[in-house]
């Protein structure tokens, strides 16, 4: 076992060399490998594409079944379900609130810690990455009594508002926001920038908003987009704490009118995919620009 794990001492069988001596054999082996790669790629592409295509197909299936014509009825009927529209709006509001508030909580703290209390940086990193190891389904169990208190102190009119989920969602996005902001801050000279601004008489708020923030703009955007994507797809916490967001609403609706539910699912998925894909394109252009 130890010999296998230590590549330096892995025994190489020495014998009469046969394989790569003849160029023709080599070329045939390369061609065979190319064919294998193409076959595998097609298989993987099919596995990943079929469920997505099926989702689109299902949401546009007409009354005549699969062989009948296409119908956009499912998409058009979305507006006929006010609860569903309300849930979509709630999810969008939650996405904005979560991304803005998580940045407002993290950025000042992380800048402050870099400048003044670097001995806390390990603790903050540990706390921010903790949600990666504690499953959301476990956190929900702990959040349930806390949300009873939150409900107790909110005015009756707002008690069922899903916006209360913001508290939990900020925790869920912590690891992703932390990593992106940390990378952003590591790329600039926070100390020099802030000391220059401070010596010119800038307040801490000015330093944060007008000096640091513009310099880590791409990282902030990155963190915000990841938060939005996570919140739009969140189901676990909302459904178990009895709040209705878009995922919960469309899950409830799937028994009743699957065409509409699948149309909303397709739309939310397309939105998230588009956001994440644009993000990866943008970040690649940046890395290429900085390396050249």
């Amino acid at each position: 076992m130890s010999a296998e794990l230590a590549p330096g001492v892995a025994p190489l069988v020495t014998g009469p060399s046969t394989a790569p001596a003849v160029p023709g054999l080599r070329r045939r082996a390369t061609r065979r490998r190319t064919v294998l790669r193409v076959v595998l790629l097609v298989a993987f592409a099919a596995f990943f594409a079929v469920p997505l295509l099926a989702l689109v197909e299902f949401s546009t299936r007409g009354a005549g079944g699969i062989s009948g014509g296409r119908s956009l009825a499912g998409w058009q009927q979305i507006v006929d379900y006010p609860d569903l529209v309300g849930a979509i709006l709630s999810s969008l509001e939650l996405a904005v609130l979560t991304s803005v508030l998580s940045l407002a909580l993290l950025v000042p703290t992380m800048v402050w810690i870099r400048l003044r209390v670097p001995q806390l940086s390990r603790l903050v990193e540990f706390l921010c990455l903790l949600p990666l190891t504690i499953p959301a389904i476990v956190l929900v169990v702990g959040w349930a009594p806390i949300y009873l208190w939150i409900n107790y102190f909110t005015p009756r009119a707002y008690q069922s508002s899903p916006l209360a989920l913001t508290f939990a969602y900020i925790v869920l996005v912590l690891p992703y926001s932390y990593r992106t902001i940390d990378a952003g801050l590591a790329a600039i000279d926070v100390r020099t920038l802030s000391e220059a601004a401070r010596s010119l008489g800038a307040s801490w708020a000015t330093v944060l908003l007008r000096v640091i923030a513009p310099n880590i703009g791409p990282a902030l955007l990155n963190a915000a987009v990841l938060s939005v994507a996570l919140v739009l797809g969140e189901f676990t916490v909302a459904s178990l704490l009895n709040y209705v967001n878009v995922q919960v609403a469309m899950n409830n609706l799937s028994q009743q009118n699957s065409n509409v539910a699948y149309a909303v699912a397709t739309a939310s998925l397309a939105a998230v995919f588009l956001l994440l894909f644009l993000l990866s394109l943008a970040s690649r252009r940046r890395t290429r620009g900085s390396s050249s």
């Binding site: 990943f48 997505l52 295509l53 099926a54 994507a229 996570l230 189901f235 699912a265 939310s268 990866s280």
Partner: peptide
């Protein structure tokens, strides 16, 4: 890029996608 997106994909929509493919009335 695609893997980065799909690795985060899950939940109700993923369940729907598979019901729409190999469920009772699925495409496949």
């Amino acid at each position: 890029a695609v893997c980065g997106v799909l690795a985060q994909f899950g939940g109700v929509t993923l369940a729907f996608a598979f019901i729409a493919s190999i469920g009772n009335q699925g495409l496949v």
